[in-house]
Write a protein that binds this DNA or RNA. Structure first.
Lengths: 207, 207
DNA sequence: ACCCTTCTTGACAACCCAGTACAGAACCGC
DNA sequence: GCGGTTCTGTACTGGGTTGTCAAGAAGGGT
């Protein structure tokens, strides 16, 4: 028995995320968010409790969204695990998409992991941002490690290798491609990096 | 026949760099720089032409300093090339030091590559920052590639591997460790990542 | 049709920030 | 010692920022 809100919450958070990714946290003003989302200042403060609230909720949504990619791409039977890892790596080095349906390559500007970017900019003085970014890394790392174990069970990766170490290394490559690929490098170069990393994975010494 | 300046230019730029690394570009005000360097606003504008000028000159100094590390650590005869690469990797994943004599591990906050951090924050709207960061990557990448070639000549790395591809991959790992290691991971974890990356380098198949 | 609750909009005040201008201080050369 | 030139510190201004507030709009329930 009251006026319903006239905006879609997720849509607003997506627009804000795009803005934050493009301009950074301190580089975007509330007016920028207002313009990007179409919401007035009052609505922003009522619904999200200001700039910082928008960021936190946008990052929360990002986190929820981020886990789905690796989980869906990497989960499955042991047989195809290595190939799934290959496909995931090739995609992951090209950035994290804003939405599941829009490819990240379209605008290199906002391709880098949202959580990583925010953590680098303001994480030093914001433990909550820090923690959220850490969670984002964990979800990817865990999924990759699980896929590595599957590949090991299938005999595609050296069983003596530590799957957690490999997962950390691959996560590092993926996050590193965010910054290496951010400017001055073509998508082909990123693909090449992913292929190199994949090719170097330790194969079992057959017989 | 005039009053000499009472501050050491490099010292000021180092202090400013530390501040920028800690708070980001948009997160530090001119007053912050003034407090960190001990210089008044007037001197800052006269000597460095404002906030942006300080950043550019600090990045310039950083670039000049950055190249020395890999060049000195990686250059040398072919025999020890692989071991030099090993040592360099182990050091590089722990960040880029503010000064050559101070270890980067002391404050994880400012350990990440200065150029990369600035490029991620404001590179999208600042081509010059973008280019400077790109140069920083190139100098590391070139030195690594040269060292890989040396190791190949010495028979320590598979001669069929593309040294440029490997250098790109290692650069990506190094930059990735900036963001992965920024928060929530111990130095031991970074060391472990470096060791994993080194262990995976393609060795020549000896007969 | 009416009322009440919630949302929305625009304006407002306090604050911070970058850059400038001006006055004083320090140093070198003579 | 003295003049001139440069450096240093501070006060000022115009613009932009954040967070709040009050008035209007819009819809649901009765």
């Amino acid at each position: 028995m009251a006026r319903p809100r006239s905006f879609d919450r997720d849509h607003v958070l997506h627009a804000a995320e795009r803005q934050f990714r493009a301009s950074g946290y301190n580089g975007t003003s509330v007016d920028d968010i207002s313009a990007a989302t179409g919401l007035g200042r009052g609505s922003l403060y009522a619904a999200f409790d200001g700039k910082r609230g928008v960021l936190m909720q946008a990052m929360g949504g990002y986190f929820a969204r981020l886990g789905e990619g690796p989980r869906k791409m990497l989960a499955g039977p042991d047989e195809g695990a290595l190939e799934r890892l290959h496909a995931y790596l090739l995609r992951a080095v090209h950035g994290v998409p804003l939405a599941p349906d829009v490819p990240p390559a379209s605008d290199r500007t906002g391709a880098a992991c949202f959580a990583a970017k925010m953590a680098l900019e303001i994480g030093a003085s914001d433990p909550e941002v820090q923690r959220l970014a850490s969670d984002c890394f964990s979800v990817v790392r865990t999924a990759v490690a699980e896929c590595v174990r599957a590949a090991q069970r299938n005999g595609d990766i050296d069983p003596d290798a530590d799957p957690d170490d490999l997962a950390y290394l691959l996560l590092t490559v993926i996050r590193g491609s965010d910054v290496v690929g951010a400017y001055g490098h073509s998508p082909d170069r990123l693909t090449s990096i992913a292929e190199s990393a994949f090719a170097l994975l330790p194969r079992p010494r057959h017989h």
